[in-house]
Simulated assay, not measured.
Amino acid sequence: MCHASCKLFVGFVLLQDHNSLQPFHSMEMIMNQILHSFAVSRYEHMKDDLCQLFEDYPHKDFQLHTQRIEKSQMVAYLYQQLETLQARGRLFSLSLQGRLKGLLCLVPKPWLSRQLGLNIWYVQHLVLAPEIEPWLVSRLLREAVASIKDEVDFVFARPASSDILSVQGLESIGFRNVGCELVGNVRCQPLTKPLTHELQSIQKTQLDDICSIARMCHEHNHYIYDPRLSSEDAAALFEALVRYQATSEHVEVLVATQEQEAVGFLSFRQNKSLSQFFGRPFACLDFIGVHPRAQGQGVGHALNLAALHQLHEQGVKYASVRTMSSNYLALAALHKLGYRITSSNFVLHWWPGISDVHHTRHDV
């Protein structure tokens, strides 16, 4: 910001600054008055800039390459999704000299909110051009989260770990890192030999059993790593996630049994939105849990093989898997399947009214 005449365009409102010595706090006061929400439908003329912003974002390129997705196709998909995201949440823009250089999308998470009794939001997109000054990123983020501060208790984000500009911007306004998440792919293949464990699709009578297993296997997720959430809250949330998936018509759940008792489960699903847009099936492996007494017996490996076999039968070539980098047992099991890491994310949490939040870690 050292030019004598600098044009800023934030929220599609133009600011002309003729004073090169204007102090930082004065610039902040001006920006407080000009930041506005961004409406996709009202700015169709900015479509090229929006698509270029996504096109220039490099931090997921290897992941797209391994999934055999052309960057231009993903850009078209992301642009299409903006209208839907706008209806659900808030979009904010950042431009320099009339060209779009940043996009922020915040969306509420009503299901998670109901489970924890908190108003939870998520940073769905934070896409920034590399030439943006860090202080300007902080200003954009601060003003955006301030617009929802009165209606939110907790916000989380998953910026790419290589996207230092976004990570530092989020940290500068109070987001805190609670872990690193690895994202990768596993090839879906048919079974080459019979499984040594008894597996079946979940039955209604097994729901409570697998939820009980879920409570025992929640040690590695970003909620348990947050010192402001109690261990009980984190366990209850993971159990609720498993229960939700086990009763959803869009999710398949396999259960491993020993002597007619459930000892493990795995949930997996197709990504309907991606599949419909690209005309070929995409899928992911979601949650897995094995009862402590059955661990080390190959139960998890059998569940993974069976799920990948079923997805192969559905025409899926690769399944994506996301796990915390500290979950070494899961990573070891995945590597047996040929797991290939394609990207990594930092998981960041923000509690705007921490003094008013009652969900605090009592056992730390």
Rank of each mutant, 00 (worst) to 15 (best):
Q260W: 10
A4W: 01
S275H: 04
T323W: 14
R322D: 14
S230K: 08
R340D: 09
G169A: 06
H335L: 05
H312Q: 12
G296A: 03
N304T: 10
K336G: 14
R187K: 11
A235C: 02
L91Y: 12
L96I: 06
K47Y: 06
I34G: 02
S325H: 04
N177T: 04
L334G: 01
T66D: 08
S147C: 06
Q73H: 10
D363H: 11
T247M: 13
H197T: 07
V183D: 11
Q260F: 07
D153H: 10
C180M: 00
K109W: 14
P227I: 00
F154A: 00
F154D: 01
K71L: 09
G264S: 04
Y43N: 14
N19Y: 00
T66R: 05
I69C: 04
L8C: 04
A214E: 11
S26T: 09
S93H: 04
L53R: 06
H36Y: 03
F156M: 04
C211Y: 07
K204H: 09
A256L: 01
P352W: 15
V251N: 11
D163T: 02
S20E: 00
D363E: 12
G338M: 03
S37Y: 02
H220R: 03
V13H: 06
N345E: 12
E143L: 08
G338V: 02
P108F: 13
L140E: 00
V253S: 12
G98W: 01
I148C: 07
E44I: 00
I148G: 12
W111C: 01
L182S: 10
L266M: 10
F346Y: 15
L329T: 06
S355F: 03
T66E: 14
W111R: 04
N177I: 09
V137T: 12
V253H: 08
S147Y: 05
K204Q: 13
S212Q: 15
S93W: 05
H358Q: 09
L21A: 05
S273K: 13
G264D: 00
I132Y: 02
S26E: 15
E44L: 00
L229A: 03
C211F: 10
T360V: 12
I148E: 09
V123W: 02
L274N: 08
T192S: 01
V107P: 11
Q52N: 11
V290K: 11
S320V: 13
Q67N: 08
D208M: 13
R114H: 12
F175A: 02
H312A: 11
E198I: 07
D226W: 12
R42Q: 15
V183E: 07
S26D: 14
M74N: 15
E83T: 11
V299R: 09
K109S: 05
A214Q: 09
H309G: 00
Y79D: 08
S273Q: 13
G169Q: 01
A330Q: 15
V152T: 13
A144R: 01
R322I: 10
G353H: 15
L199N: 14
S231R: 10
